[in-house]
Design a protein around this nucleic acid. Structure first.
Length: 1014
RNA sequence: GGUCGCAUAGCUCAGUUGGUUAGAGCGCACGGUUCACAUCCGUGAGGUCGCAGGUUCAAGUCCUGCUGCGACCACCA
């Protein structure tokens, strides 16, 4: 029989086997069941082209753990999977590849061809990321997998946009955006990063002029890091209370480059007296602060200099067509030759770069679409303030509230081709007559429908003050009316070329995945219609609102806030009740893991090396509430698998004189290359994979549990299920049930609070330090005894059964393998009444163990037994007495303690190879004994000839010294008047008892010392 | 500059509402081939709880300041 259960747990085979078993049995499927409560988690949708990283692994493990437990607790537990089309990221990857491999840009192939290519790319990579999630054991309802650009999500996006447009919450405006001149798109503030670059800080001056073009001889100096923008200056600004410039306010200066006259204005928000010269040039179209100044002083005007590709336009005069950096040089030269350059300083300048193209972004004035945040944000704020959404840990609510409190309008347009195209058709600059005609045509279209599928906004304005009133039409079309779109285009309307910000569609994730806005059909399953709702969408109301969102703190604002906001807007209810924010995994030096730093371990490698369950268990042990976790990583020698910790040098090493960095393995002395952002390993060269030995924690635990179960199964011969009679239970049985019940309730409490680290610790401690170290050891003799075996087997199997259930959400594969194996031996089992085991551990009922089993006084009594055993082992170890050498134990103690000790006397032989000779109050210390004291019992082990008298004396002296210190401290406390009078009576009493205990122990020790000193 | 964290053993982390001797895993030292497990067993060493004040009978825990580290937000002519 033992040949059938290997000594070491081998995860690889089980993972594939059980995952498909679960899937085939539909255990992951979640369909509405009015008899059961729902539990819903939507996945923080990974980028479709991304690869699984440690953040995903942590995030996914926790969600799966929660989902699996809820499922066992009787919920219909839905974990909704899916991926994000990730606009810029995905388009950029495909474009880069296309350029590298074929030398083509998107403009070469056109919009539709590019989008087609990206779809193909998506099909391939979606399978990769979802497959990686599966290898993590994710129990998602894969039938419901959504993609933010699929049909279901597209409808939701169109409807939401339409509603917002109709409600006047979407508007088009000119704004300064971060413009990526390489990708030719606006990028959001959170899609840019700053890099300090060595640059210059120039100081120039403009001549002050009066009456048209009369130079007064005065000049105003100012500094800039971007001289080229002088061509677009529309004012010079000073602080209103700055006496140096007070007399100049209202006068003008001349831009020497083009002779344009611009006013000198006062603006307290823009100019700061103490900065630089106190005067500042104002370039509204190319600087956010200047733009803000312009909105306060619109009379100064605004001049845009840039073309989308970063060259200068016609407003730059003679500089038209030149790149911005070329213009910069020429402008500086020109100003210098005109004598207007005062000085040049070197300066480190933080320059914003686009995350995607890694090129510097330009502040750029362009037409963008915005969502008005005022009321939407306010509702989302109230959702959290009124605790309809709760953050765990609670402190993260502040991040959310602070950000929403700013109520900044949300720029939702992106100049990309990959995404949800903005559903607005427009026609601009119409004179009155054609405008009336168009209005009439639109009315005609509208009249054909009863439910207003299009919404028209007319705007009239004049381009730039020439008096002509022109009319613009903006028409938004609801989802599901392609024929209306065609008609508009026949009328000469053109569709807005922009697509929506990716976050616009992911903001709808909690309800769009459940089929909103379709109230008549359930969302499709595996792409096929699901008619089980009989004409209504039963899925949406059943699973919405969700239970908990599990995420990392960096998208609380971008994503969490926006989901709450759209959930309230579309559904009238928050999207989830809890938000659990888990820690981030950093490398051993405290930096975030990333490809560009070469410090990221690949969860797939870890799973390959340690097994899924080990990775999950270790990861769960990281997930506490207090701080981020550092994960020191290392390289695995490709020759001998030795683990070599990664150092900063490894991270930073770059090829030197053509030689690529190598690491020499300290074990096999061979060297190897490793994956690094700084070089590509040579073809055919063995490359070290990056792992982390921290995962041995989980692997060792799994192996321990495997072997404990193996032991149980090896001892189940003749097992017959039957009611366990509580009266027949032995001390160790009652103890392990007490501990099991305590542990199970702790695990529940911790998991309800999202304290996964504490939950894993409780389980590990119980399994290893209580179940294995003590209980299994103690029942070994009973399992060899025919009379005692049946009861011992029942308790053993019952505890193991409960453990398999408790561990299943943490380590689903090993528990399933053991569950199925255990079924062969014990198809019926349980505490205290046996029941048939369920078909799978993952659908077994979650343990609900009676609290009455928890027996504190019994645990105290048991603790004395443990202490005695440990004390004996200690003596054996200190005096180096071989395990086989027999020893005798005498215990001096109260009669009731003696009764306990006698009751379990056989265990002393079993656990520490010693015979309890006698116990009782009358016991005297035999000469030549090693001694120990436990507080309410003293132990003596006669070791005539085996112990070194001097050594034993020293040991006892040390013990006495420690006790004297404790007594002094405690006495000091008790002699403190304040303590006696102010501390609670209970504490004072406890302290007195403690002191008595110390004194007794010291007495015992001193008696031993006296005896030894004779 | 604002906000939120973090600092406890060589390393990575726990430490509930203040209350006996501050814990765990890894690592380290010593000893172990007893029929579940060497991915194991036994024993042990190792900490001025970042620094300085304060509150309290009592502070790793509460308050203030400082130092260092991290994240987010804002700003940077």
């Amino acid at each position: 029989m033992s040949q059938e259960i290997p000594k070491q747990y081998d995860p690889a085979e089980d993972q594939a086997k059980w995952y498909s078993y679960w899937e085939q049995n539909g255990y992951f499927d979640a369909d509405p069941d009015p008899q059961k409560p729902a539990h819903t988690i939507v996945i923080p949708l990974p980028n479709v082209t991304g690869a699984l990283h440690m953040g995903h692994a942590l995030n996914g493990t926790l969600q799966d753990l929660i989902t699996r437990r809820k499922r066992m607790q009787g919920f219909v537990a839905l974990w909704m999977p899916g991926t994000d089309h990730a606009g810029i990221a995905t388009q950029a990857v495909v474009e880069r590849r296309m350029l590298e491999e074929e030398g083509l840009t998107r403009h070469d192939i056109g919009r539709q061809a590019l989008v087609n290519r990206i779809w193909k790319w998506k099909e391939v990579y979606e399978q990769r990321i979802l497959g990686q999630l599966k290898s993590l054991g994710a129990s998602c309802d894969w039938r419901r997998t959504r993609f933010t650009l699929d049909e279901v999500c597209s409808k939701a996006v169109r409807r939401t946009f339409f509603k917002l447009f109709k409600d006047g919450l979407i508007f088009r405006g000119k704004r300064l955006v971060n413009w990526d001149t390489y990708l030719q798109t606006a990028v959001a503030d959170d899609e840019v990063f700053e890099e300090e670059t060595q640059g210059f800080f120039w100081t120039f001056n403009y001549p002050v002029v009066e009456h048209d073009d009369f130079e007064t001889g005065e000049k105003i100096s100012f500094s800039t890091t971007r001289p080229e923008t002088m061509l677009g200056d529309t004012a010079v600004c000073v602080h209103p209370s700055d006496e140096r410039y007070a007399h100049l306010i209202g006068k003008k200066v001349k831009i020497p480059l083009n002779g344009r006259l611009i006013p000198i204005i006062a603006d307290a928000l823009l100019a700061k007296k103490e900065m630089g010269t106190g005067a500042v040039k104002v370039t509204p179209a190319h600087d956010p602060n200047d733009y803000a100044c312009y909105t306060r002083n619109p009379q100064i005007g605004i001049i845009n200099l840039l073309n989308p590709d970063g060259t200068f336009n016609e407003n730059a005069g003679e500089y038209q067509g030149l790149d911005r950096y070329a213009v910069r040089e020429k402008v500086v030269e020109r100003m210098e030759s005109l004598g207007r350059l005062e000085k040049i300083e070197d300066r480190l300048i933080p320059i914003k770069h686009s995350d995607r193209s890694k090129t510097p972004v330009e502040p750029y004035l362009s037409d963008q679409w915005f969502v008005k945040m005022e009321t939407l944000a306010q509702n989302a704020i109230e959702g959290v303030e009124e605790n309809r959404v709760r953050f765990y840990p609670a402190r993260y609510a502040k991040t959310y509230l602070d950000w929403l409190g700013e109520k900044r309008d949300w720029c939702i347009s992106r100049q990309l081709w990959w995404g949800h195209r903005i559903p607005v058709w427009s026609m601009s600059d119409l004179q009155k007559e054609p405008a009336d005609k168009i209005a009439k045509s639109l009315e005609e279209i509208e009249s054909q429908y009863s439910n207003n599928p299009l919404f028209v906004r007319e705007m009239t304005d004049g381009p730039y003050g020439d008096g002509t009133i022109l009319c613009n039409f903006l028409v938004c079309v609801d989802e599901g009316y392609p024929e209306v779109e065609d008609k508009l285009e026949q009328l000469g309307f053109t569709r807005d070329p922009d697509v929506l910000d990716t976050w616009f569609s992911s903001a709808l994730w909690p309800h769009e995945t459940l089929g909103w806005p379709d109230t008549d059909h359930n969302p499709p399953l595996n792409g096929e219609p699901d008619d089980s709702g009989n004409g209504t969408n039963t899925v949406l109301p059943y699973f919405y609102p969700g239970s908990v969102l599990v995420t990392s703190r960096d998208i609380i604002t971008l994503w969490v806030a926006r989901m709450v906001l759209t959930g309230l807007y579309n559904m009238g209810d928050v999207p989830f009740k809890h938000v659990h924010v888990h820690p981030k995994i950093l490398d051993g030096f405290g930096s975030t893991m990333s490809k560009s730093k070469g410090n990221g371990v690949d969860p797939v490698d870890l799973i390959g090396k340690y097994g899924t369950d080990a990775v999950r268990f270790t990861i769960a042990s990281f997930a506490g509430e207090t701080q981020d976790v550092r994960l020191p990583v290392g390289y695995e020698c490709p020759h001998c698998a030795e683990y070599i910790p990664q150092t900063k040098q490894h991270q930073d090493a770059k090829p030197k004189e053509g030689a690529k960095p190598r690491i020499k393995c300290p074990k096999c002395k061979k060297d190897f290359q490793y994956s690094s952002p700084n070089y590509t390993p040579d073809e055919g060269e063995p490359v070290a994979r990056m792992v982390s030995d921290r995962f041995e924690y989980g692997r060792n635990f799994c192996n321990k549990f495997w072997n404990a179960s193996r032991f149980a199964m090896l001892n189940l011969e003749g097992y017959a299920p039957g009611e366990i009679d509580p009266a027949a239970l032995r001390l160790e049985d009652r103890w392990i049930l007490s501990r099991l019940s305590t542990t199970a309730h702790e695990v529940d409490t911790f998991l309800d609070r999202y304290q996964f680290d504490a939950a894993t610790r409780a389980l590990r401690d119980f399994v290893w330090n209580e179940f294995c170290d003590w209980y299994l050891e103690m029942i070994k003799p009973r399992l060899r005894d025919d009379d005692q075996r049946p009861l011992a087997q029942r308790v053993l199997v019952g505890v193991l059964d409960a453990l398999l259930r408790l561990l299943s959400p943490f380590a689903p594969f090993i528990t399933e393998e053991l569950w199925q194996r255990l079924k062969e031996f014990a198809p019926e089992r349980g505490l205290l009444t046996p029941r048939p085991a369920e078909d799978s551990a993952m659908i077994a009922a979650w343990p609900a163990l009676p609290k009455e089993w928890q027996d504190h006084s019994l645990e105290v009594r048991f603790g004395r037994l443990q202490e005695t055993v440990i004390a004996v082992r200690n003596v054996r170890s200190i005096y180096n007495i071989p395990p086989a050498t027999p020893m005798k134990l005498y215990m001096r103690c109260r009669p009731e303690v003696a009764a306990d000790l006698n009751d379990v006397s056989a265990q002393f032989e079993n656990l520490s190879r010693i015979v309890l000779e006698a116990a009782g109050a009358e016991i005297e210390r035999p000469g030549g004994s090693a001694s120990f004291t436990l507080g309410d019992a003293d132990g003596y082990i006669p070791l005539e000839g085996l112990i070194d008298k001097e050594a034993e004396l020293a040991r006892q002296q040390k013990e006495a010294q420690k006790l004297r210190g404790l007594i002094a401290g405690t006495e000091g406390k008790l002699s403190n008047e304040g303590f006696i009078s102010r501390a609670p009576e209970e504490i004072v009493q406890k302290t007195r008892e403690t002191l008595e205990g110390y004194k007794k122990q010291l007495e015992s020790v001193e008696a031993v010392i006296a005896a030894l000193s004779e």
